[in-house]
Design a protein around this nucleic acid. Structure first.
Lengths: 139, 139
DNA sequence: GTTAATGCAAATTCTTTGCACTGCT
DNA sequence: AGCAGTGCAAAGAATTTGCATTAAC
């Protein structure tokens, strides 16, 4: 979501201080973050920020594909800034740092195999990997 | 979770009417189901069933690996009866029917590739497929 | 100047907890 | 009989909605 301002403008939405705060937090911390946490960090940037606006902004960004909703171990609702296109998240179990990667052929192969086995027609998938990032592997 | 009674007994838990109702609903409907829905269907079998018990029973079954918590499009918290071992869910977009499948080598290949690209050490994954089941493909 | 966006408070929904009672084993 | 399990009611979180005010364009 590098050029989120452009995306919002194209969608006919306004660039406001609240939205800037939310976007900045999402970009600064490249880890999945809950609405509550985002609110707390966002308040440091824009003290008037309200939790309600965080929810609304996340919904907006998600509908534009700028943010992805993902699973976190301690619950369900965390958001991660994302690039457009179909990517997947890889989250570090220890520090929460996250990166994105593209699916590739392996996933296609797997989908075709499952189609053959089950008779289903597979047309969407949700994939999330977890592990240790380079910095966290030594400890 | 075909022999859930045995699993519960081994774990030192009792077989009760409430647990039977929850288990029966989970086995009958092989689709992801929310606690609320499960409560409504369960009440038909065992009218005294309470929503609280549904939550508690789901938590118990999940801790024994008899039930899997999965993502559903309309929210996050749905449960699916599952076999032991590491399997993944394939859910029909139209009727909700779900089946399980094993990961296989493709997923391993993908994980190794992502490790090489990112430097992460990948040790866990969450994969869910969606599509149309054989019965829903014609319409 | 218009109208989208905000933030507060209140409403709803979802989930957990405390506690006396019930019913497996 | 003894204690795990239950269900109610109430507490606590998480999320959404109504509405007057603010600020982007």
């Amino acid at each position: 979501m590098t050029n989120w301002e452009e995306c919002l403008t194209e969608a006919g939405c306004r660039i406001t201080a609240s939205r800037r705060a939310v976007a900045q937090v999402l970009l600064d911390i490249s880890a999945p973050i809950s609405p509550q946490e985002l609110f707390e960090l966002g308040t440091l940037i824009h003290p008037k920020l309200g939790l309600v606006t965080v929810y609304r902004t996340l919904a907006l960004l998600e509908s534009l594909g700028l943010v992805r909703r993902i699973h976190r171990d301690d619950g369900c609702h965390a958001y991660l800034s994302s690039s457009p296109g179909h990517r997947h998240a890889l989250v570090c179990r220890r520090c929460g740092q996250a990166v994105e990667f593209r699916g590739g052929d392996d996933l296609e192969t797997l989908a075709r195999r499952v189609e053959a086995t089950t008779g289903f027609q597979v047309d969407d998938h949700l994939l999330q990997l977890a592990g240790l990032c380079p910095g966290c592997q030594d400890r």
